[in-house]
Simulated assay, not measured.
Amino acid sequence: MDPATSAVEQGPRVQTRCQGGSRGRARCGCALNLVLLLAVSVTFAGAAYRARRRPRDVAFVATAYYLLALLLCCLAKLGHLARASEGEAQLRRVRLAAWAVSVALGATFASRVADAMPLLALKLAVWGVAAVFLGVGFYLFFYCHDAGRCRAELGPGQDAARPPAKASHELAPEEMV
Protein backbone atom coordinates (compact mmCIF):
# COMPACT_ATOMS: atom_id res chain seq x y z
CA MET A 1 0.00 0.00 0.00
CA ASP A 2 1.53 3.32 -1.05
CA PRO A 3 1.42 6.44 1.19
CA ALA A 4 -1.06 8.28 -1.08
CA THR A 5 -3.62 5.46 -0.89
CA SER A 6 -3.09 5.17 2.86
CA ALA A 7 -3.71 8.91 3.34
CA VAL A 8 -6.87 8.79 1.22
CA GLU A 9 -8.24 5.88 3.22
CA GLN A 10 -7.47 7.51 6.56
CA GLY A 11 -8.57 11.02 5.53
CA PRO A 12 -12.35 10.75 6.05
CA ARG A 13 -11.92 8.95 9.34
CA VAL A 14 -9.77 11.78 10.69
CA GLN A 15 -12.10 14.48 9.36
CA THR A 16 -15.30 12.98 10.78
CA ARG A 17 -13.98 12.02 14.18
CA CYS A 18 -15.87 14.83 15.93
CA GLN A 19 -18.98 14.33 13.83
CA GLY A 20 -19.48 10.59 13.89
CA GLY A 21 -20.78 8.75 16.91
CA SER A 22 -20.87 9.60 20.57
CA ARG A 23 -17.30 8.43 21.13
CA GLY A 24 -15.89 11.02 18.74
CA ARG A 25 -18.06 13.78 20.20
CA ALA A 26 -16.95 12.82 23.70
CA ARG A 27 -13.30 13.12 22.66
CA CYS A 28 -13.89 16.54 21.12
CA GLY A 29 -15.85 17.67 24.17
CA CYS A 30 -13.08 16.47 26.45
CA ALA A 31 -10.44 18.22 24.34
CA LEU A 32 -12.46 21.43 24.34
CA ASN A 33 -12.86 21.24 28.12
CA LEU A 34 -9.13 20.73 28.56
CA VAL A 35 -8.32 23.69 26.31
CA LEU A 36 -10.78 25.89 28.24
CA LEU A 37 -9.38 24.71 31.57
CA LEU A 38 -5.87 25.48 30.38
CA ALA A 39 -6.92 28.96 29.18
CA VAL A 40 -8.65 29.75 32.48
CA SER A 41 -5.68 28.43 34.45
CA VAL A 42 -3.21 30.54 32.48
CA THR A 43 -5.42 33.62 32.93
CA PHE A 44 -5.70 33.09 36.67
CA ALA A 45 -1.98 32.41 36.97
CA GLY A 46 -1.28 35.69 35.18
CA ALA A 47 -3.69 37.53 37.49
CA ALA A 48 -2.08 35.96 40.56
CA TYR A 49 1.36 36.97 39.26
CA ARG A 50 0.27 40.58 38.73
CA ALA A 51 -1.24 40.68 42.24
CA ARG A 52 1.69 38.95 43.97
CA ARG A 53 2.54 41.97 46.15
CA ARG A 54 -1.03 42.46 47.38
CA PRO A 55 -2.14 39.51 49.57
CA ARG A 56 -5.81 40.51 49.43
CA ASP A 57 -5.79 40.40 45.62
CA VAL A 58 -3.99 37.05 45.58
CA ALA A 59 -6.58 35.65 48.00
CA PHE A 60 -9.38 36.92 45.76
CA VAL A 61 -7.85 35.36 42.64
CA ALA A 62 -7.24 32.03 44.37
CA THR A 63 -10.73 31.95 45.88
CA ALA A 64 -12.38 32.83 42.58
CA TYR A 65 -10.40 30.15 40.73
CA TYR A 66 -11.21 27.51 43.34
CA LEU A 67 -14.92 28.37 43.40
CA LEU A 68 -15.14 28.44 39.61
CA ALA A 69 -13.48 25.03 39.35
CA LEU A 70 -15.79 23.68 42.06
CA LEU A 71 -18.85 25.09 40.28
CA LEU A 72 -17.82 23.47 37.00
CA CYS A 73 -17.35 20.13 38.79
CA CYS A 74 -20.80 20.44 40.39
CA LEU A 75 -22.40 21.27 37.04
CA ALA A 76 -20.65 18.34 35.36
CA LYS A 77 -21.88 16.02 38.12
CA LEU A 78 -25.37 17.48 37.75
CA GLY A 79 -25.33 16.82 34.00
CA HIS A 80 -24.10 13.27 34.57
CA LEU A 81 -26.82 12.56 37.12
CA ALA A 82 -29.52 14.04 34.89
CA ARG A 83 -28.46 11.82 31.97
CA ALA A 84 -28.15 8.73 34.16
CA SER A 85 -31.55 9.40 35.81
CA GLU A 86 -30.19 8.72 39.26
CA GLY A 87 -32.24 9.15 42.41
CA GLU A 88 -34.01 12.45 42.96
CA ALA A 89 -32.42 12.89 46.41
CA GLN A 90 -28.87 12.79 45.04
CA LEU A 91 -29.84 15.11 42.18
CA ARG A 92 -31.31 17.58 44.67
CA ARG A 93 -28.14 17.47 46.83
CA VAL A 94 -25.94 18.21 43.83
CA ARG A 95 -28.27 21.05 42.79
CA LEU A 96 -28.01 22.47 46.31
CA ALA A 97 -24.21 22.20 46.22
CA ALA A 98 -24.05 23.90 42.81
CA TRP A 99 -26.31 26.70 44.02
CA ALA A 100 -24.28 27.14 47.23
CA VAL A 101 -21.05 27.38 45.26
CA SER A 102 -22.63 29.86 42.85
CA VAL A 103 -23.79 31.95 45.84
CA ALA A 104 -20.24 31.94 47.22
CA LEU A 105 -18.81 32.88 43.83
CA GLY A 106 -21.40 35.61 43.31
CA ALA A 107 -20.81 37.01 46.80
CA THR A 108 -17.06 36.98 46.20
CA PHE A 109 -17.38 39.00 43.01
CA ALA A 110 -20.06 41.29 44.46
CA SER A 111 -17.89 42.12 47.46
CA ARG A 112 -14.97 42.92 45.18
CA VAL A 113 -17.06 45.15 42.91
CA ALA A 114 -18.85 46.81 45.85
CA ASP A 115 -15.49 47.72 47.41
CA ALA A 116 -14.57 49.57 44.22
CA MET A 117 -17.76 51.69 44.29
CA PRO A 118 -17.35 55.22 45.69
CA LEU A 119 -20.91 55.76 46.99
CA LEU A 120 -22.96 53.74 49.44
CA ALA A 121 -25.92 53.75 47.04
CA LEU A 122 -23.80 52.11 44.35
CA LYS A 123 -22.50 49.53 46.81
CA LEU A 124 -26.07 48.68 47.81
CA ALA A 125 -27.07 48.49 44.15
CA VAL A 126 -24.28 45.97 43.47
CA TRP A 127 -25.42 43.80 46.37
CA GLY A 128 -29.06 44.14 45.27
CA VAL A 129 -28.31 43.01 41.73
CA ALA A 130 -26.26 40.11 43.08
CA ALA A 131 -29.13 39.08 45.38
CA VAL A 132 -31.63 39.20 42.51
CA PHE A 133 -29.45 37.06 40.25
CA LEU A 134 -28.78 34.55 43.02
CA GLY A 135 -32.52 34.38 43.74
CA VAL A 136 -33.24 33.73 40.07
CA GLY A 137 -30.56 31.04 40.11
CA PHE A 138 -32.20 29.43 43.12
CA TYR A 139 -35.56 29.42 41.34
CA LEU A 140 -34.09 27.95 38.16
CA PHE A 141 -32.15 25.26 40.02
CA PHE A 142 -34.95 24.04 42.25
CA TYR A 143 -38.33 24.98 40.83
CA CYS A 144 -37.88 25.20 37.08
CA HIS A 145 -35.72 22.16 36.35
CA ASP A 146 -38.36 20.54 34.11
CA ALA A 147 -38.69 23.57 31.84
CA GLY A 148 -36.15 22.26 29.34
CA ARG A 149 -37.90 18.91 29.12
CA CYS A 150 -41.27 20.60 28.59
CA ARG A 151 -39.90 22.82 25.81
CA ALA A 152 -38.31 19.80 24.11
CA GLU A 153 -41.65 17.96 24.10
CA LEU A 154 -43.52 20.95 22.69
CA GLY A 155 -41.09 21.66 19.91
CA PRO A 156 -39.64 24.95 18.70
CA GLY A 157 -41.90 27.99 18.57
CA GLN A 158 -44.69 26.51 20.67
CA ASP A 159 -45.94 27.79 23.98
CA ALA A 160 -47.18 25.70 26.90
CA ALA A 161 -50.21 28.00 27.34
CA ARG A 162 -51.66 27.27 23.90
CA PRO A 163 -52.06 23.86 22.28
CA PRO A 164 -49.83 22.96 19.34
CA ALA A 165 -51.19 23.95 15.95
CA LYS A 166 -52.55 21.22 13.70
CA ALA A 167 -51.56 20.82 10.10
CA SER A 168 -54.22 21.80 7.55
CA HIS A 169 -54.80 18.19 6.52
CA GLU A 170 -55.64 17.29 10.14
CA LEU A 171 -58.39 19.92 10.49
CA ALA A 172 -62.05 19.13 10.12
CA PRO A 173 -63.91 21.17 7.43
CA GLU A 174 -65.65 23.34 10.07
CA GLU A 175 -62.27 24.14 11.72
CA MET A 176 -60.78 25.46 8.47
CA VAL A 177 -62.80 28.69 8.64
Rank of each mutant, 00 (worst) to 15 (best):
A114S: 15
Y49W: 10
L68P: 00
G46W: 09
L91D: 05
W99F: 13
L38C: 15
V113Q: 15
T43Q: 10
A59F: 01
A26G: 08
G87W: 00
R23E: 11
A51G: 06
L72I: 02
A39D: 08
R95H: 08
P55S: 05
A76C: 03
A48D: 10
C30M: 11
G24N: 01
C73S: 06
D115L: 13
L32F: 12
V58S: 03
A107L: 15
M117D: 12
L34N: 13
A31L: 13
A100V: 08
L75W: 00
A100G: 14
S41I: 06
V40I: 12
A107E: 15
R54H: 08
R50M: 09
A62W: 02
M117L: 15
V103T: 14
D115H: 14
H80T: 04
C28F: 07
V103L: 15
L75Q: 01
H80N: 05
V61N: 04
R27P: 01
S85Y: 03
H80A: 08
L68G: 10
A39L: 14
Y65F: 07
V101F: 08
R112Q: 14
S22I: 05
C74K: 05
G106S: 14
L32C: 09
V61F: 07
C74V: 02
R25I: 00
S41K: 02
A110C: 15
L72M: 05
M117G: 14
A116V: 09
N33Q: 11
L70S: 07
R25Y: 00
G29C: 04
A76D: 05
L36W: 09
V35W: 11
A59T: 03
Q90M: 08
A89E: 13
C28G: 07
D115N: 12
S102W: 09
A97S: 12
E88P: 00
A62K: 01
A76Y: 02
A89T: 09
L91T: 06
A89M: 12
L34H: 09
L37W: 12
E88N: 04
V113K: 15
L34K: 07
A107M: 14
Y65N: 01
